[in-house]
């Protein structure tokens, strides 16, 4: 693989649902590249197609048309996808919904070792889980025998991140990882994301509706509206010289501490 091969490359990528009159295009003719070790944010209002695009990158959805390459090779539609998921992993918006409520947390963390053809020995798996939990500031012994609903939202979100510390993938798709947690826990979650990025030199695709947050974390922003990427560029370019009215809208909607936002009559 040449050094400059991008991590992801999409050409005219389209994903539509339904047929005929009820056809709805969620991702419309997207063309972009994401470089290795880059943090790219997909920004837009709900329903703009950013989550479907994230699912395409995660190989959880198949493109309707167009091409999507990972490290220069098409994301295969058949064959064992586990190799892909060893490289490309995700954290989701609602950590309660992301864990199965019938199994203990520890059992579910252990399940990610399925991705390896040769599972490490029991002791090693337990050790790696413990270390990952410590890395996100959770005490391993306190989680023994616990079920998802027994923990707070912030703790659950950190568990999703612990999974990433166990798997150590090359790419992380983070789908609104801070929007369901308490505002005061957000800083913590972002800290762990940055720690992951530094430790593993990961590529991160960050999905968010908050352009301010995207500005804070990313190297590049893609602004999405109705399935299309309407603008892409560096955070400073996009936020200081927006070319799309949709970008301007997103910027106006942030509740800033420093300037007027909603005014009363």
């Amino acid at each position: 693989m040449p050094a400059d091969t991008p991590c992801f490359e999409a050409r005219n990528l389209t994903r539509a649902f339904g047929h005929g009159a009820r056809r709805k295009v969620a991702v419309d003719d997207a063309t972009f590249t994401i470089a290795e070790r880059e943090i790219v944010s997909l920004v837009g209002q709900s329903g703009c197609g950013k989550s479907v695009l994230a699912k395409l990158l995660l190989r959880l959805e198949k493109p309707s048309s167009g091409e999507l390459l990972y490290q220069g090779r098409p994301i295969a539609e058949s064959g064992d996808p586990r190799a892909y998921w060893r490289h490309v992993q995700a954290v989701f918006q609602d950590p309660y919904a992301a864990f199965n409520q019938f199994f203990t947390i520890r059992a579910q963390l252990k399940a990610c070792f399925r991705l390896f053809d040769q599972r490490p020995p029991e002791r090693e798996m337990e050790d790696r889980i413990d270390q990952a939990l410590l890395a996100v500031n959770l005490r391993p012994r306190e989680l023994d025998g616990k079920y998802p609903f027994e923990l707070s939202g912030g703790q659950m979100q950190r568990l999703l991140l612990a999974r990433i510390f166990i798997l150590r993938p090359r790419v992380l798709i983070a789908d609104e990882p801070t929007s369901m947690v308490d505002a005061c826990s957000r800083a913590g979650i972002l800290e762990y994301l940055m720690k992951l990025k530094q430790e593993l030199s990961m590529t991160i695709v960050f999905v968010t509706h908050d352009i301010g947050l995207a500005y804070y974390v990313s190297d590049r922003l893609f602004i999405l509206h109705e399935g299309r990427i309407v603008e892409q560029g560096t955070p400073d370019d996009v936020t200081q010289r927006p070319t799309s009215p949709f970008t301007r809208q997103l910027l106006d909607d942030i509740p800033s501490v420093h300037r007027p936002w909603v005014t009363r009559a």
């Binding site: 505002a183 800083a187 301010g212 947050l213 500005y215 804070y216 936020t239 200081q240 420093h258």
Partner: peptide, 14 residues
Amino acid sequence: SMLSAEPGQKSRKP
């Protein structure tokens, strides 16, 4: 602890 992230305010770390 609040990330009141806004363009141009990148310096302050929550």
